[in-house]
């Protein structure tokens, strides 16, 4: 019998991969999408170039909020210790 805790662990690992892909997409998309033009024509937000503001500041804050939400709703608390009932053998 498969240890039930591993089902959660596998799901959470997949969520980790998805989060990294989202993180990378935001970071890359804004940085090179908005920052690819001539630097003298940049628009600015709160003093920062728009590409930098979205990619490095807003993107980071968004990721932290997203991670907190994902952990609250999709992560399961399990015991890490050896369980006595079953789960031994194949």
């Amino acid at each position: 019998m498969e240890d039930k805790r591993f089902k959660y662990a596998h799901r959470e690992a997949k969520i980790g991969v998805i989060l990294v892909i989202i993180n990378f997409a935001i970071w890359y998309g804004f940085a090179y999408g908005l920052g690819g033009q001539d630097p003298t024509t940049y628009t600015y937000i709160l003093g920062f170039p728009a590409w930098f503001f979205y990619s490095c500041i807003a993107g980071t804050v968004f990721m932290i909020v997203l991670i907190a939400v994902v952990i609250k709703f999709f992560f399961t608390e399990v015991s890490l210790e050896e369980e006595d009932d079953g789960c031994i053998g194949k």
């Binding site: 805790r5 591993f6 662990a9 980790g16 991969v17 990294v20 980071t60 990721m63 991670i67 399990v78």
Partner: peptide
């Protein structure tokens, strides 16, 4: 690019490694 070092390591190794 170092931001994932904060969450990715613990999500991937996470519970399975600890168990």
């Amino acid at each position: 690019a170092q931001l994932p070092a904060g969450y990715f390591v613990l999500m991937i190794l996470g519970k399975k490694f600890a168990i």
